[in-house]
Design a protein around this nucleic acid. Structure first.
Lengths: 232, 232
DNA sequence: CGAATGATTGACCCCCTTCAAAAGCGGTGG
DNA sequence: CCACCGCTTTTGAAGGGGGTCAATCATTCG
């Protein structure tokens, strides 16, 4: 998932409840996941909604899933974007308290939440992994809180782009794909669509970034300057 | 700790990494805590700082501890206030990534972090408790994210006061004590001291609250109206 | 092509920040 | 007891950044 970092090291951290799926993790989990059924989602389709019984945990296989909460006045607050490899739907309650919606065509793998918990009950190692992962997750959410709480529009957008770039892993490739709408970015950063758009064009006219392909592809022309603008 | 809720049920949830210290929790933890040494803190004194080795986990016994992160430009972002009964200093890393500072004279109990982890390694039940607690914690931080991300000053301050009131537990007593400075509240809510002060006087002139004792005691005259203003 | 959805740009305005000053409050010492 | 000082809070005035409303443009799809 996408972490907007404000602390060093400037690396990514998971953003939503998830656990590592590396070989170091309990094999039982990976094995279960590899046998799990795959569900395909169209853009804007929901994986789950607030209030739904929390029957499954999902691992994103393809696409981008927005994790969000709906406010009482109908506004939407995106907490995080989940990318392939991320686990979503973990939690302490038997209901989902957030919604998860595909921002583009996506695929997820489904695992029974009850199964995962029963595994953890007899496997202290797995339970501890879950605990530590959520601690990391918490740290990342706090970072987003810092970013959203007191930073300007330019700082937020710059941080977001840098986070996306680092997320991609390809240090040489200075392009990032915005696999979500402007409204999704706005709801993540606590801005309006117009401000996001204006800020992107501002960065473009400054020569820091380039915007192509109808606004879905962004080239980071001057990463150093962008980092400076992010003020991290 | 203090959770600003934006979802129903409008109840409190823990805000910083902590676990329940109720009898239902592993006895080993409670026992350890009851034998732990107590440390007294003056106002503004630190429990720990960002970058410090994470040697201990603390339980707040008296007072209020602000959990915060320092930004690169020197600003401070308070993530949470920890109250008596709350555990602070939990985490996945061997360094603290946040600072903890007393907002007033306080007392904390110290427990070795290594001890807690070694207990959890052999006790799946304890580890699972840790996991679930941090999940709750995560949910609460996300709620604060929602509040801070897209709400007006009145909404934020109203939410904060209501959260404080619920935190106190005494439903009959309509007074809350602000055991922290305006600057602390401002840094939690992502506002300036002036705006916090102005908003409080605005609420006062509206007859929704009363401010006494040099601004440290607030009376909630009209909880219904305040809830309405909080827009939760 | 025309309708629908999303992105961009412009104009205006309001809420909050910033800068500045005054007023409370508590402590210390003459 | 009061003067003085430091810290915090309150209040005022001015300015700006982002929100809101609205129009235009771009892209996709039936």
């Amino acid at each position: 998932m996408l972490g907007i970092q404000t602390v060093e090291p400037r690396s990514f951290r998971p953003q939503a409840p998830r656990i590592s799926t590396s070989p170091a993790a309990s094999n039982s989990l990976d094995e279960r996941l590899s046998h799990a059924t795959v569900r395909k989602l169209e853009s804007k389709e929901h994986v789950f909604c607030e209030g739904d019984p929390r029957l499954h945990v999902f691992r994103v296989e393809e696409g981008v899933i927005a994790i969000y909460k709906t406010l009482c006045d109908g506004r939407r607050r995106i907490i995080d974007f989940a990318y392939p490899g991320d686990l979503i739907g973990l939690g302490a309650l038997d209901e989902h308290i957030l919604s998860a919606q595909a921002t583009c065509t996506s695929k997820v793998r489904c695992l029974s939440a009850a199964t995962l918990e029963s595994l953890a009950e007899s496997d202290a190692n797995l339970a501890l992994k879950l605990y530590k992962s959520v601690c990391q997750e918490l740290a990342a959410t706090r970072s987003l809180l810092v970013t959203v709480g007191q930073r300007s529009a330019v700082e937020r957008v710059a941080s977001f782009l840098l986070a996306l770039h680092r997320r991609s892993g390809e240090a040489d490739d200075h392009t990032v794909t915005l696999a979500m709408r402007r409204s999704d970015i706005a709801d993540l950063l606590g801005l309006t669509i117009e401000t996001v758009s204006r800020t992107l064009t501002k960065l473009r006219t400054m020569g820091v970034i380039g915007v192509e392909q109808g606004g879905t592809t962004v080239t980071l022309c001057d990463v150093v300057r962008l980092t400076d603008l992010a003020n991290e």
